[in-house]
Design a protein around this nucleic acid. Structure first.
Lengths: 340, 340
DNA sequence: GCCTCCTTTTGAAACGTTTTAATTCGACGC
DNA sequence: GCGTCGAATTAAAACGTTTCAAAAGGAGGC
């Protein structure tokens, strides 16, 4: 069972087995068309030489690769790794490799990744873009690589996209708080330029006014990012409000912010949920695992990924594909942080 | 600026610009060798046709790809995404793409990924393996793909590897607890078959006995996985011990377990750190962000990734490469969870 | 023994790029 | 005006695979 460390080619295998190169290829691709004895001979030669198919040559010849790619916005956020896992399941089912890239929320990094992926001729690109309106995305789609936007939406029907109804999510969160008797509520998160944040807060306001509550009692605390640190700093500002006017509950634009807020409250002795109830968004694993388990709006993360993969595969394989905007429904998960 | 949606090749560009195919290639690869006027003509043609280089053809011709790969053990664990980020920086510097795969701690999935990567002829593979002793790894290295083991070690010098001194880490954790006056301590984590866990606990025992403390006062609480849920269940077992004999501190094999334990303590009213001090391991972002910020043993995650990438690049490019085992030094980060 | 039919095997071409050696062409020195 | 040199360009080959039409072997019928 000697193995060569320099990679053997189909030609080498053919020579070793004493057959033609076409036969080796047949063994690889239509084993039924080759006589059992020959096949065995070839397979033995492949094992002896340590033959490994060259995917570059394969996809050059085929005109397409067996690869899908997902460009994540932030690999450090468990939300996106869960989405990636959903995509991976779908890719696995279609016998495709999944290429994961991380833009880290930087447009330049994203562009570099997209450039590489286009050169690789991946079958399709899934992306949670830094900016869904970027013309870079149009250029790619225009040149022919199927592209699906994940967890963002975009005006017009240029692309398929998969998202969650953020307006509804915001509504659910605030309805829950109103149900629990809260009459002064804070909205915490930002920047407002992020579509998700704007939508969630819009839903929150709708719920608030539908309940007939005065708009002035819904306080907006804008944060400059959706991070734990931003949540802590919002906690400070909240604590600065005189207790008679201070909100008794906060709806945070994501779980990281909510965890930061929770941390600040706990360390300063503010009781959660007695003095401050908290609702997060995303329902990441750490939300349930927090010291006070967090009420949160759950998004179907894995399904999001799976649906996106299905769309991109349809676009790649189905000639009469039509772009679709899939919208999932979020769900409120009530836990101790709002259990009065 | 009309663009073709069917991908144009070098040949098409050559025809459109009225030059030979070799000239187009020169524009791409040695622009200085081609006259300014011609170059401009070619570049215009490329833009008009929306030309995108075909990476498959390129790497087939070159005999190697411009790609590195990292097979992660668990994409959901922030520790590994941080390692990945370190690798990515190194890859970016070397103008390589980084292919991220997730084995999800399943050997079969890992094998599938490795097979694909070998076919892709990636320049090198970085991997945190399910089982560092697996012969699959040897087979790959033997066939010639540079492979570096990340965050695990392996007997013998078959591969390069990059790891952190877990024995020392365990020692630091327990020395810290002893310093703070704790005389009954629990070790929480498992399964013990994981090398990391065994090493950390070994270091813990060394510190304990070196301090002249009786071995019986160091309790081992074996968990069946390194997850938040396992930490909670360990909390229950801990609470079951009569308070006179109950450990006053716990050293957890990783932060997820520590967070679970912390959560259980908080919800059952056990004061942290007054009644139970907790030390975690990994210092993931959520450790500092916990309701009671967690003391933890920090590993240089990004440096780990960067060093691994450097090793694999050396192995790929340097003919007189020699396998090395790099070991980093961990560091204790003291926070509120042990601040008596 | 010849023809047909079916199974198995073969040879050649093609995918798109890079590279090397060869060619063209104008300028320059003599 | 001839030879030479250098810069710019070209033509052809190669990378490893798949595919397709064609060829080679049998087996069987007459």
């Amino acid at each position: 069972m000697a193995q060569q460390s320099l990679t053997a080619s189909v030609k080498d295998v053919a020579a070793a087995a004493g057959v033609s190169l076409g036969t080796v290829s047949n063994v690889l691709n239509r084993p039924d068309r080759v006589a059992a004895a020959t096949r065995e001979k070839v397979e033995r030669a492949m094992a002896e030489l340590g033959f490994v198919r060259n995917e570059s040559a394969r996809s050059l010849r085929a005109g397409r690769t067996r690869t899908l790619a997902y460009v994540m916005l932030d690999a450090g956020n468990p939300f996106f790794t869960d989405v990636a896992q959903g995509i991976e399941h779908a890719a696995e089912g279609a016998e495709l490799s999944l290429f994961l890239c991380n833009s880290d929320a930087r447009a330049s990094r994203e562009a570099t990744h997209l450039g590489h992926l286009e050169q690789q001729r991946v079958q399709g690109i899934l992306i949670t873009p830094v900016d869904p309106e970027s013309p870079v995305l149009d250029a790619i789609a225009h040149r022919g690589t199927p592209l699906v936007i994940v967890d963002r939406t975009r005006r017009g029907a240029q692309f398929c996209s998969v998202a969650v109804d953020d307006v509804l999510g915001g509504r659910l969160a605030v309805e829950h708080l109103v149900d629990r008797g809260h009459r002064r509520v804070a909205l915490v998160g930002g920047p407002l330029s992020i579509g998700q944040v704007a939508d969630r807060f819009e839903g929150a306001r709708t719920a608030w006014t539908s309940a007939g509550l005065p708009p002035d009692d819904l306080t907006l605390l804008v944060a400059d990012s959706l991070t734990v640190a931003a949540g802590r700093s919002a906690g400070e500002r909240l604590a600065g409000i005189p207790s008679g006017r201070r909100p008794t509950a906060a709806f945070c634009a994501n779980d990281l912010v909510a965890l930061g807020l929770l941390q600040h409250a706990t360390t300063t002795g503010l009781q959660v949920p007695e003095q401050l109830a908290i609702v997060g968004y995303d329902d990441i694993e750490f939300a349930a695992a927090a010291a006070v388990p967090l009420t949160s709006v759950r998004q179907p993360r894995q399904e999001l990924g799976r649906a996106a993969a299905d769309l991109v595969l349809d676009e790649a394989g189905n000639p009469q594909h039509e772009h679709r905007q899939v919208v999932f429904t979020p769900e409120l998960v009530a836990r101790a942080s709002t259990r009065g």
